[in-house]
């Protein structure tokens, strides 16, 4: 297995806040790697730094051994990096199909029209509701449908690496299940490597091979996901158990 994505001592600051403090991470080809942590821990920032929406203060990011600092943001898509950001961010006044077509925009040089059509069909099989609504404006879709559209838009360019930010956010449990089934299929049928940022730790650990836990911008725990799934420290990282214990000990 070769390294697909490597983060080396990445530091990101917003104004005076350090959002990422010296974060290092590795993702091997064909893997699903989960990044877990409470709100505000810096998970989304990490994905944004990979897709160059936020600049690095220091550190390096390599993709297939290539230093990404030399690549302009809009060319990442053509290299096979696809980012499905938090909050879906579908283009609300464009139709579902236009949204999907735009997903292929960055890969238009490496993909033939036929391949794009084939991918589109596959996405419609994956999420049949998108086919039903293909001529509807994306803004009129429900939250779950928008998430499916965002996923589909991120997949249509046949990416090598998928950066997936909180795909289950704000969705009803039944839809969460559906989205995670889709993620499994994407990985199994297309062999896409996935960097998955999630709040839903149990779900994410069930899918991922390896996981990192981010706490206030730092990686606090890492390991194979089967190990972390039974680790009490994971629960503590989310629910702040340490403070509670401290408090009860004091009383």
């Amino acid at each position: 297995m070769s390294e697909l994505l490597v983060l080396e001592n990445v530091v990101v600051t917003y104004g005076a806040v350090q959002a990422l403090k010296d974060v290092s991470l590795k993702l091997y080809e064909g893997q699903i790697v989960a990044v877990l942590g409470a709100n505000g821990a810096g998970k989304s920032t990490m994905l944004k730094s990979i897709s160059k929406i936020v600049p690095l203060q220091s550190g390096k990011i390599y993709y297939k051994g290539k230093d990404l600092s030399l690549v302009p943001a809009h060319e990442l898509a053509s290299l096979g990096i696809s980012h499905v950001p938090e909050g879906r961010r579908v283009f609300s006044t464009l139709t579902v199909e236009e949204n999907l077509n735009l997903g292929a925009y960055g890969g238009r040089e490496r993909l033939s029209q036929k391949e794009v059509e084939a991918e589109k069909q596959w996405i419609f099989e994956l999420f049949p509701v998108l086919l039903e609504r293909k001529n509807q404006l994306a803004g009129t879709l429900s939250g779950g449908e928008q998430q499916m559209l965002a996923l589909g838009r991120g997949l249509i360019s046949k990416p090598t690496l998928l950066l997936l930010d909180e795909p289950s956010l704000g969705l009803a449990p039944i839809l969460v299940k559906e989205i995670f089934n889709a993620i499994r299929k994407i990985h199994e049928e297309r062999g896409v490597s996935i960097l998955l940022v999630e709040q839903n730790a149990k779900k994410a650990l069930a899918e991922a091979h390896y996981a990192y836990i981010l706490e206030t911008g730092k990686i606090s725990i890492e390991g194979p996901s089967s190990q972390l799934a039974n680790d009490d420290r994971v629960k503590a990282a989310y629910l702040g158990g340490s403070a509670l214990e401290k408090k009860f000990e004091n009383k």
Binding site: A38, Y238, G240
Partner: peptide
């Protein structure tokens, strides 16, 4: 609050 240490504390 998102920092559970604060909330629980």
């Amino acid at each position: 609050e998102h920092d559970m240490n604060v909330v629980m504390g």
